[in-house]
Design a protein around this nucleic acid. Structure first.
Lengths: 227, 227
DNA sequence: GATGATTTGTACGTATGTATA
DNA sequence: ATATACATACGTACAAATCAT
């Protein structure tokens, strides 16, 4: 069969968009690890498209910082040096702090209630030790914070940073008491925001972001063999 | 002549990289204005390459936020709403503040000297009213700040934001006393950094970034006609 | 509203550069 | 070290969508 048949009946957009989403998903969920090769031909075959959309997707993912591309060499899932990883965690802390400060100052009544509700609802998950569900809550909680800051651009920066950090967060997932500690830190942030104490909210959000570079050594950049 | 001859004898990289640089330059220097159409075929003809590298460059520029791309519609130079523009200026102020704070705490002796030297050298430009030269100095000054923060990722975020803001800064270029005011603000920042006063440096850097949305109305996003 | 012109989206071929036996 | 295999870079052809008349 020469011409590829469409892989889905309903197209969600262009092929390139699908590829960007698909590949990004593989990367942030950890199905592909840093330094894994992203061979254009293989990806094209795997998703049953031609190489052209794959190339464009890889180019876009490169600009997003999720993949590394050097001329004439296979693209690879982005690796980072230990120092760069540290800089991303620090940036994350600073950005979260900004969002928390702004949120404390700007959130509407309704937004404050939503944040409090989301937080309260997570108490049960902590008691049950529901790691997976808590992780979903955690993302919603932080999204409410970003949104509550009422600054679109900062929201994009923090989301982008969070995505690039995703492949390196996996390690810290199963620390003892992680859930209850996280919950208590959220508690501090929420309390500060509810009383509109911007400085306290910022400080709490900053210290909530783990600065420790917990990533496995294997994920850290070993200089690639390719020029 | 069917096959394109190389436009340059020495290739600086791949064609796509050249296109990204070239188009980005047109955008940030204001030769192309927000909402200007970026026709793939025209660009390909203009730079004497095929559409393929142009497409990939546009995809990358899209991910960088310099151009907008919707399926089946011409790419256009990125427009922003007034509120988004404001959010970028605010983000810029926050990021500059972080850099200044970190720089005050972390710059080496040598880096502090360089910053001071760069600043002192600009005094002459202010006296002479050398707008163009001062603008070059200004970029170097801020780059020293970003670099002095010793945080690569934050450096990338602030550089990226600065680039996206470029097409909208043009308006504020010729304000009265702009140079001397800028110089005095730099003075405050430098002084704070030299005495390692992080908070003062951050505050000074924050207020140094003009929050006013000075862009001409024509540059602001009017909803595009294309789906 | 239908039709032709223009432009984007995707497939594929060939050349060139890199890695490997 | 030379040659072979293989992956990418770019050009080009065609299909599909959009816009203008």
């Amino acid at each position: 069969m020469k011409h590829a048949k469409r892989r889905e009946v309903v197209r969600t957009g262009t092929t390139v968009e699908e590829m960007v989403r698909a590949i990004a998903h593989l990367i942030v969920t950890g199905e592909l690890h840093p330094a894994d090769k992203l061979d254009e031909t293989s990806l094209a075959a795997r998703f049953d498209v031609s190489r052209t959309p794959v190339r464009e997707a890889l180019r876009q993912l490169g600009a997003m910082g999720l993949v590394e591309r050097k001329p004439n060499c296979s693209a690879v899932v982005a690796r980072v040096t230990e120092s760069y990883l540290h800089s991303m965690f620090e940036a994350m802390a600073e950005l979260e702090a900004i969002c928390a400060r702004l949120a404390a100052a700007r959130m509407t009544i309704r937004e404050r209630s939503s944040l409090e509700a989301e937080h309260r609802a997570s108490f049960r998950l902590v008691q049950e030790g529901a790691e997976e569900a808590y992780s979903v809550h955690n993302i919603r909680f932080h999204s409410l914070l970003y949104f509550g800051a009422h600054n679109e651009h900062i929201g994009e920066l923090v989301t982008q940073t969070r995505m690039r950090l995703a492949p390196f967060r996996r390690a810290q997932f199963h620390l003892p008491e992680r859930l209850s500690r996280s919950f208590q830190e959220h508690e501090t942030i929420v309390a500060a925001i509810l009383r509109a104490d911007a400085d306290a909210a910022g400080a709490a959000a900053y210290s909530h972001v783990s600065i420790v570079s917990t990533a496995a050594a294997a994920l850290i950049a070993n200089p690639s063999t390719c020029p």
